[in-house]
Write a protein that binds this DNA or RNA. Structure first.
Lengths: 216, 216, 216, 216
DNA sequence: TATGAATGAGTGTTCATTCAT
DNA sequence: TATGAATGAACACTCATTCAT
């Protein structure tokens, strides 16, 4: 049968697409706030202002919905990373910028960290063997490798730095501070989320990473 | 009523203590494996081989049980940290040792990270205003401050380093790698938990922290 | 409005007819496999490779669809029974043949029994007061009455046999064995559906019915 | 620990037992009325006047509950059959009595037939390989075999009769009439459950079975 | 101190059915 | 005639918690 391309059909298609995206956004917020286990399908439907049954219509079950949210989250952050154009910058600036981006992104997207926590609590079975996950993330490593290589060639950076290790370190410096900010605040008895504290953290992170990389 | 100090009463007391510890250990394992939301009181009772009702007898409810587990976890790690005697070492060695300890402790106590994740998902309300939590953790900061100060005085370390920032960085470098090992492995398509990979991570972490601290 | 008799309209009509028959067959299979309660409208649509909405278009709801399936089933068996031409045979042969036919028909149409079970579970409200059902079945009783009467007149059969009772008995002998074959096999620990077992059952049934009817 | 045999403990034990039996009876009625698929756990709890959760506490899930009901049903009928003392009667009387018992039992326990129907709809997977089911039913076959053998030895009965076949026939004659009484009534346009009709059916059944067995 | 029995409020999921085109 | 999107009511099952002893 010929594909129906009438305006009405397009409207319908757009509706279906819109519904799926609405659900996805609602689910992301719910999973971020309560984790995979604590999330409630009822609340997701409520957030999306759509019938709960529709979630199952499009995403089958909670697990698959979570997987879809997770993949979308990775797609989002990697997409934004590509706008940094790190290869156009001096190596040191490129690294400084990546640290800043990572920090800012986590700060503005706390749901990303919660999603990762949930995924790891379940041993990332939602991502296991996901070709898509790997494809999405390899460009970042390639870019970082190129930056490190150029820095080394120019005599600015130390050699022998594994780009994966470095990326994990950059992410870790931001992640731990932000993801565990509540326990850290309780433990150290000081608010880590004031504007001043946040600025200091970013400076510190850049100092640590560049202090490590730069050959003096 | 006067405190009963007869042998029989003591016996009973020891039993009661033992039951509480058994429950606490079972709960720690359950919370670690499934998170606060995913943990089941039934399973905790089963793991402890004790009647479920007894858990409520000693800990009132799930929340309070979680709080008890969390406090116990902090007590454990800080207790072990005091055995490091960092003040007896050269500053650089002390930092190297602290990095190694943090790494090893997280590696051997993955439940610590999961507990923190759960606590933070719930905005650490289990620790909110906990005097005990602060007391438990201040010695660590004091010690680290002393190490940094001595390093600076001796001209080995850079100045102006906030011990809290540094501690968060050390923890973050280990935490992110280990807590998110499943998603990272899926994303980067390489096993991060082989013996070799683990050794490399520790070296990298020490390089980063000392590369940052040491004045060349 | 005048009936549209253009070729195109006829074409559409044939399509409509075909769709209804496809749905009916799919529904019969689904009801047979899962019973009325266990049948799923979704699966019926899938089996028919037609849109679910179409089922409602033609049959209004599940109940009415079941009724249609049931009537179709009765129509089928009675239609086949008329091809036996029992009145052309000697009375004893006619009975033997009817027993064999009943046995074979149930064997080849197990769905018939499941449909009856479902209908009776619901107190046959789908058939209640169905003129059609009665009309469909009275010829059989008339025929059987004629056979019995002739047998009695010829001195071969005993008298006073109610054709309805006899028909119920013939059906019952086959039905119970086939409809409950799974529980019977489990209970008696022997496979009742081997070729040998099936032949023995048919012989036994004929022996029972003719042993009862024939005057020795 | 020593078994608690105090009156209070016994009371408690009895309560548990009573609850289970109450649930079992309620479930039997519900399954009988609506079949396995149509039965509702909520209604079973309501019938039993017990909390729904308790059903799961004792029987795990709907399937296992059904299995328990089914086994109980077999236990009941076979238990009653043993009270017939068939071996104390003349062979012809024994058979007549068994036919009557079967008829009366089905009449008074229509749930038994519905349960069988449900079990067979699901291919008797609830009984599959059930040692218990076989053990429960073999005495009946043994008894019937003895009756047939004695009848043959005394010259009253024909030889070569398989007791399993005969039992299936007796049951089938009653079962089909009673289990399908609603469709049969609709189809033949006559009420099959009046006192007169029921008496006639029993006579007919006895005539059929003995007409077959007796050597004239 | 210790335990088996019991419960109310959810929880993810399913189902027959309807809407809109 | 035909279809993809959407829905409300249920459904089997679960969970933290309490009762009664």
């Amino acid at each position: 049968m010929a594909r129906d391309t009438s305006p009405a059909a397009e409207e319908r298609l757009r509706d279906a697409d819109r519904s799926q995206n609405t659900i996805l956004a609602a689910a992301r917020d719910e999973f971020a706030e309560f984790g995979l286990g604590g999330a409630r399908m009822d609340r997701i439907a409520e957030r999306a202002a759509l019938n709960k049954r529709l979630i199952y219509y499009y995403f089958d079950d909670k697990e698959k919905l979570f997987r879809a949210v997770l993949e979308q989250a990775y797609r989002d952050i990697r997409e934004q990373e590509t706008t940094l154009h790190l290869l156009d910058l001096e190596p040191a600036d490129a690294v400084r910028r990546l640290v800043e981006f990572t920090w800012t992104y986590y700060l503005q997207h706390p749901e990303f960290m919660t999603l990762l926590n949930s995924a790891n609590l379940h041993k990332a079975r939602h991502l296991a063997g996901s070709q898509k996950a790997r494809e999405l993330n390899s460009p970042l490593v390639d870019t970082l490798a190129a930056v490190l290589e150029r820095g080394r060639r120019e005599g600015a950076f130390r050699g022998g730095v594994d780009p994966v290790q470095l990326y994990v370190s950059i992410a870790g410096l931001a992640y731990f501070y932000l993801s565990n900010t509540h326990t850290l605040s309780a433990i150290f008895g000081r608010d880590l989320m004031t504007a001043k504290a946040r600025n200091e953290r970013l400076s510190h992170m850049q100092d640590v990473i560049l202090g490590y990389l730069l050959v003096s």
